[in-house]
């Protein structure tokens, strides 16, 4: 298996990433894989012990976000698949890229410097190098869009 991994988070900031991935899939004729990582760090804000139920709901939401991206790709004639994984964003992308032996990984740009579950600018460059090294895939960055 091979193809393009496009890690998405949903929302307006993912739009350039999705567009770039679709364009790349058209260029290379490779299968596009949209990837959503479920991260439950926000549960630290509450005493909720309902991790199982919440995880299921977040998976469903991730599936839906990925499905919306797939629909967009298919409307443009690009074959796209979707995957939802748990854990941290960085590890999830590397593991999935290794799993499908990806040729390309399309990433968005760092969104905010202070958030723990997305890349800081300092970590981003080393992360790109690490993905390329560990997966053998080439990392393609979408246009930087600051919100």
């Amino acid at each position: 298996m091979s193809g393009i991994v496009c890690a998405i988070r949903g929302g307006p900031t993912s739009k350039p990433t999705i567009s770039r991935a679709i364009a790349l899939a058209k260029e290379t004729k490779k299968v596009l894989h949209f990837l959503y990582i479920v991260n439950l760090d926000f549960l630290a804000y509450t005493e909720s012990s309902r991790v199982r139920v919440i995880k299921e709901e977040m998976h469903e939401m991730g599936d839906f976000i990925v499905l919306a991206a797939q629909e967009k790709a298919e409307n443009q004639g690009v074959e796209a698949q979707g995957a939802v994984r748990d854990g941290t964003v960085a590890e999830g992308i590397i593991e999935f890229s290794q799993e499908i032996e990806a040729d390309y990984v399309v990433l968005g740009s760092p969104r905010a410097e202070h958030e723990e579950n997305v890349f800081t600018r300092e970590r981003f460059e080393s992360f790109v190098a690490m993905v390329e090294k560990e997966s053998g895939a080439k990392v393609v960055l979408s246009e930087i869009e600051r919100s």
Partner: peptide, 14 residues
Amino acid sequence: NMVTAGIADSAGYP
């Protein structure tokens, strides 16, 4: 509010 914000952020709407 906090959990709503957390989930919205996970969907790309901080």
